[in-house]
């Protein structure tokens, strides 16, 4: 009897911890309310903007910038120029006060992730951010846990793609085998050093 109770409740507790104490639960699915309801799906999938039109420093900087309101106004000075949803953007472009966007993807502060080294070595946005081009509201699609990083760092080949396809989030290789051998070739040619040393990410 006691053994059965222990098995049931002990097993339940272990199962609960196993299931819930994982970034797949604690992070994935986070989708905050943004000050402006910006739909990536409309801007990328329908209009066809490249990621870098707005996130313009991603190839040069460790940090992928959120665009300034003036970037929005490049088009929205003519398109939807009276729309109340864009009032915060117009005000920000006018007086320079930042738009209070809520950051969705936030690794711990002791993790030093560098965007530019990844996008310049064949790792697409989609690997870490999911199909953001199809999201009406951005949500945290991948766990971004340490295992998540290491899975790729141990075997980067299958995740590397031609450099002109980095921001083409829907891109698929001819087939997984071709993509794998192609990616392994890239890893060799570009001298991809996917370090597994602690100090690669933790400094």
């Amino acid at each position: 009897m006691a053994v059965l109770v222990l098995l049931l409740f002990g097993g339940g507790a272990v199962g609960g911890i196993w299931y819930y104490f994982s970034p797949k639960y604690t992070r994935v699915g986070y989708s905050p309310i943004q000050p402006v309801p910006f739909p990536h799906s409309v801007h990328v999938d329908q209009v066809g903007l490249d990621c870098r039109y707005c996130h313009s420093q991603v190839e040069k900087s460790w940090y992928s910038n959120i665009p300034s309101a003036t970037t929005c106004m490049n088009c929205h000075n003519q398109i939807l120029k009276e729309d109340p949803r864009l009032q915060i953007i117009r005000d920000s472009a006018q007086d320079g006060r930042p738009v209070p966007w809520v950051q969705v993807h936030k690794v711990p502060d002791y993790v030093y992730f560098n965007h530019s080294v990844h996008v310049n070595r064949g790792v697409s946005c989609v690997h870490c951010h999911g199909e953001i081009n199809k999201m009406d509201e951005v949500y945290h699609a991948k766990p971004l846990s340490m295992t998540f990083c290491l899975d790729c760092h141990r075997n980067p080949g299958p995740n590397l793609r031609p450099l002109d396809r980095i921001t083409d989030l829907g891109w698929k290789g001819a087939n997984p085998d071709v993509q794998k051998s192609q990616g392994e070739q890239f890893a060799h040619d570009w001298k991809v050093n996917a370090s597994q040393n602690c100090s690669a990410c933790h400094r």
């Binding site: 819930y20 639960y25 604690t26 992070r27 699915g29 986070y30 989708s31 936030k106 711990p108 502060d109």
Partner: peptide, 24 residues
């Protein structure tokens, strides 16, 4: 608690928040 991957407005839970957020 819901299930893994459910869309949620609640910010990510930091189970061991020791140095997750630093004043830098």
């Amino acid at each position: 608690a819901g299930f893994k991957g459910d869309k949620t407005r609640r910010p990510p839970i930091e189970l061991f928040p020791d140095m997750d957020r630093q004043p830098k």
